[in-house]
């Protein structure tokens, strides 16, 4: 094995030289032209799901006249940090995540679905469970989704406190990390009840991922403001206008494929001021 040493040294030297040469090349040729658009992970972050979003990517690229990279980070924190350090230009955030990202990095709200202005969180249980109202969950096992989720944690938590329940004292709860896991935990009986995003719940029932006969909704929260598309603070105003315009001009049936990916019917402009209620609740619950 000692005979190999001269070879290895030459190799190391050559590779070192190659490394130096490579690093001198222009580095950000492609990154500078493609817009990076992030989607939060609650709809599934797989290679296939990104491929399935190709119509959305193509639509945006055509409207913006730029290459578009769709990125699905696996957690909320990573998405916001990426907006903060500029590795994402635009992103789709839940209400609470938006409020934090706005406070932290001054992200700019652009557009949201009409349905995001009247969003609901559902309290679900098993069909046969003796739970018919919020007060019945005292002493039970309960599942929230991700701790940073508006519809999976913040609003249902708030609904409980409004009903005179102190989740920290009156029940034992856990975070499942995402909406489908919450639904599965309820279906399997691992918990007695859970709180879930209404659009994810209905999509799971329609897709046959949940047994319809086993599940029941026992409480629906009052409407609240949720998901929103945002731009990072120092993105170009022209890009922002074009990005918002692309969403505002989506109409069925011509754009049905894109709208289906976004699980919406039409888009409207979003305003930061309307998130004040969410901000107040989040502060009250020590989540902000």
């Amino acid at each position: 094995m000692f005979s190999s040493r001269p070879i290895s040294r030459r190799c190391v030297l050559a590779s070192g030289a190659a490394l130096v040469a490579l690093s001198a090349l222009p580095r950000r040729a492609r990154a500078a032209t493609a817009l990076r658009v992030g989607m939060i992970p609650d709809a599934g972050a797989t290679q296939i799901s990104i491929d399935q979003k190709k119509p959305l990517r193509d639509y945006l690229a055509a409207k913006l006249g730029r290459d578009v990279d769709l990125v699905i980070p696996t957690n909320y924190n990573a998405t916001v940090e990426a907006l903060g350090n500029g590795s994402l230009d635009f992103a789709y955030l839940g209400g609470l995540t938006y409020v934090k990202a706005h406070a932290q990095y001054g992200v700019v709200p652009l557009v949201q679905r009409t349905s995001d202005r009247e969003f609901h969180s559902l309290f679900i249980t098993q069909t046969a469970a003796p739970i018919n109202a919020l007060k019945d969950i005292r002493g039970k096992k309960f599942a929230f989704g991700d701790i940073n989720s508006t519809s999976g944690h913040l609003m249902p938590f708030y609904a409980m406190t409004q009903a005179g329940i102190d989740p920290d004292k009156d029940l034992s709860y856990r975070y499942t990390g995402n909406h489908p896991a919450t639904a599965k935990a309820v279906e399997s009986g691992a918990v007695d009840a859970g709180a879930i995003d209404e659009s994810v719940y209905r999509a799971m029932l329609d897709g046959g991922q949940l047994d319809k006969s086993k599940m029941r909704i026992f409480f629906t929260t009052p409407p609240f403001l949720d998901y929103v598309w945002v731009a990072r603070k120092d993105s170009a105003p022209a890009d922002r206008t074009a990005f918002a315009g692309a969403f505002l001009s989506l109409h069925a049936p011509g754009d049905a494929a894109v709208l289906e990916i976004l699980r919406g019917t039409s888009f409207v402009r979003a305003n930061d001021g309307e998130y004040d209620l969410l901000r107040t609740i989040a502060t009250k619950l020590k989540l902000l």
Binding site: P41, A45, T46, P73, T74, N75, P180, K184
Partner: peptide, 23 residues
Amino acid sequence: GAVGGGGIGTELAGTLSTLDFHR
């Protein structure tokens, strides 16, 4: 990868959160 580094880890976390167990 499971926290966003990419690769099989990201993919694995994704298939589990969509309950796509075959994948």
